[in-house]
């Protein structure tokens, strides 16, 4: 039974706690990412994070670093990647989206190099790519808890600013908001949430956890606040269903979580269509 396993295996328990945390924080931040049309940034940053993880694995293997785990180097790379993206976006003002392929390909390139240097694909890398139900150590969990708390505080504190900047940057700037500082804080938060989510959903699917629940919520919500609340509900449902089914089916949870999200999206679209048809008819 899953419950027995949860009670007796700490790693599994940590994974579930982490799942609940990222199921909350990823769609929350994702709402801002989607309305700012930055959905692809999550992909760019996750691949930079992979480079960091590969670097960590390489260092661990060759130089037995004790205090820096691949998880830590992933976070560091992700934050550096975030700053690079934001800088590139201000350099290429006319085509800001070019910042994403630049960082994404650099991330993949570095990952390939470090993975090769660390003697190729092994189970560790596999867990980072697709997620794992038993990858979260107690110290990782603490770090993810701190990250979640930090991001949550920042969003509560900067809610109005983030909302206004997402809707109309010029108006927000004229009103005296410090757009640049807030952009940097926002993208660094994104980097932190991505690093935290990778343990559960993996590098390749982390952006899905930030965007699919939001894509679903946007179809049914009437206001911005509702969009956030529904996104979090859809995110949590996907994480719980995905982790439980992943455990039983012995499939990396990244796959099951994303498929659950996609099913929720499909169902929501269908129900909405039927509902609208019913309203127009009746």
């Amino acid at each position: 039974m899953l419950l027995d396993a949860l009670l007796s295996f700490e790693l599994l328990r940590n994974t579930f706690y982490t799942g609940l945390l990222v199921g909350f924080i990823a769609p929350l931040l994702g709402t801002f990412i989607v309305v700012r049309r930055l959905s692809l940034i999550a992909d760019g940053l996750s691949h930079v994070t992979l480079a960091g993880i590969a670097f960590g694995l390489f260092m661990q293997k060759k130089y037995t670093l004790l205090f820096l785990t691949p998880f830590h180097t992933g976070i560091i790379f992700s934050i550096i990647g975030a700053i690079v993206i934001e800088n590139l976006r201000s350099v290429y003002k006319a085509f800001q989206e070019i910042a994403i392929p630049i960082t994404l390909s650099l991330g993949v390139g570095l990952s390939v190099v470090f993975i090769a240097l660390a003697d190729g694909i092994n189970t560790d890398i596999f867990a980072y790519l697709f997620g794992s139900v038993a990858a979260v150590s107690r110290s990782d969990l603490y770090l993810i808890l701190v990250t979640t708390g930090l991001v949550l505080l920042l969003i509560i504190f900067l809610y109005k600013e983030l909302f206004a900047l997402s809707f109309d940057e010029e108006f927000a700037t004229v009103s005296g908001m410090r757009a640049k500082v807030i952009h940097y804080l926002f993208i660094i938060m994104t980097a932190l949430v991505i690093s935290a989510s990778i343990r559960i959903v993996g590098v390749l699917l982390v952006s899905a956890l930030m965007t699919l629940p939001v894509a679903t919520a946007i179809r049914v919500a009437k206001s911005f606040k509702q969009t956030i609340i529904y996104s979090i509900i859809y995110g949590e449902v996907a994480v719980i269903v995905g982790l439980v089914s992943g455990y039983y089916l012995e499939i990396p949870p990244g796959g099951t979580i994303v498929i659950t999200s996609a099913i929720l999206l499909g169902l929501t679209l269908l129900v909405k269509k039927w509902y609208l048809a019913y309203i127009y008819k009746g």
Partner: peptide, 11 residues
Amino acid sequence: FPATAKEVVGM
């Protein structure tokens, strides 16, 4: 953009 008129004014 998923925002109500009230939310926009609130900005």
